[in-house]
Every structure is written in structure tokens, then in C-alpha cells.
Amino acid sequence: MEEKFEPKIIAFLCKWCSSAGSDLAGVSRMKYPPNVVPITVMCSGSISPNYILSAFKDGADGVLVSGCHPGDCHYIKGNYYARRRITLVKELLEFIGIEPERFQMSWVSAAEGAKYTEIIKDFVKELEPLGPQNKLRSNL
């Protein structure tokens, strides 16, 4: 029997909102696919494009960046900076021919456990037809 492709997602979640949101999903016993590896960062504004590229390089099929809603940032404006930077990363990845579905950004607050599960479910569904990401995978 052929094995079904299970996409691997790296999710960079900010400590104050998105990570708490994913926690809420957990303690509320909501179900979502186990394909996601969450990495907590202090703020979405602290996510360097290097993190994203190295996640792809180390074999991630999709990368999710998630932060607080605009106006809710613990550090007042970190997510606004993130929004600009991530826009540039996304445009550049699309420009060199990475499928736009592979890199996504979302706003998830600490109260939106349900939204987080939905995002992951949709993300996995979008990645399944694309197959494994081999374009940026390290070939050293």
C-alpha cells in the first residue's frame, strides 16, 4: 500500500498570542492534524527571513508565521514590522517559483484556538496536493 504524503509544517508562533492560541486549542481538546511543529518566538517581529529560509532548507513543506492581531502586539508594534517583512519574503518566494501556498501568515489571538485549528487544517489540505517541497531543501 502506498503511503500517504504527510506534509511537515513549521509554525513560528508568537509567545503572547498565537502560541497561547495553540495552547488553548490543546487544553480545549480540539482536534487538528499533527503535521505541525510549533516554534515559539518572542514576537512575530523577531522572525528573521533566515528562519523561514532555513526551515525550508531543512525540509519543511510549509511554513506558517503567526502573530497577534494588529494593535494587540505585546511590544506595541512588532507585528506591524513583521507584516512588512513577511510581505517581502512572500513576494520574493513567489517570484523565484515557490508555490505561494507553502508560506502563509496569520493573525491568531490567545482566544482563537478554534481559528488556529482551522488554519492548520486548511494548510495541510492545501499542501497535500503539492507534494513534498524539494526546491529549497538542502542538497549538501
Binding site: K77, Y81, R84, S106
Partner: peptide, 14 residues
């Protein structure tokens, strides 16, 4: 990248 506007485009963000 050291600046932002409140109404920067964010259509791509879920």
C-alpha cells in the same frame, strides 16, 4: 523595514 503604516496591505494574512 524599520517603518510601518497602519494600513499596510494584509490581504494575504489569514
Amino acid at each position: 523595514v524599520s517603518d510601518f503604516k497602519d494600513d499596510d496591505p494584509q490581504d494575504f494574512i489569514i
